[in-house]
Amino acid sequence: MYSEKVMDHFRNPRNMGEIPEADGIGTVGNPVCGDMMTVYIKVKDNRIDDIKFKTFGCGAAIATSSMVTELAKGKTLEEAEKIGRSDVADSLGGLPKVKMHCSNLAADALHAAIEDYEKHKGTKR
């Protein structure tokens, strides 16, 4: 059902956890749907210096969260904003069709975190 890459990220998720003093936090999905994820970013010189995630959901939800943090880490905010759902799925060697819609929310969570950062930029959190 899942590719080797998906299973690898599910087994050994990269960047799992929280950033206590994050510059931006984005949460998408909800527990009712069975998938919910939060992405935390730390921004330095317009780059994503650190990124972490927390996810409730199926194997695809966890793997896409892990993958999106790997794709975004070290990128400028402009570059990170361009990471889309299909980039995440492609980097994982594809996802089962039924998972493309509901469990592939990681890119949205990243974008929400960036938006949150932009909104609070210059203000103390």
Binding site: F56, C58, G59, A61
Partner: peptide
């Protein structure tokens, strides 16, 4: 509570 069935199965 707090976790999802498919990931438990995997």
């Amino acid at each position: 509570s707090f976790i999802e069935g498919e990931s438990i199965l995997l």
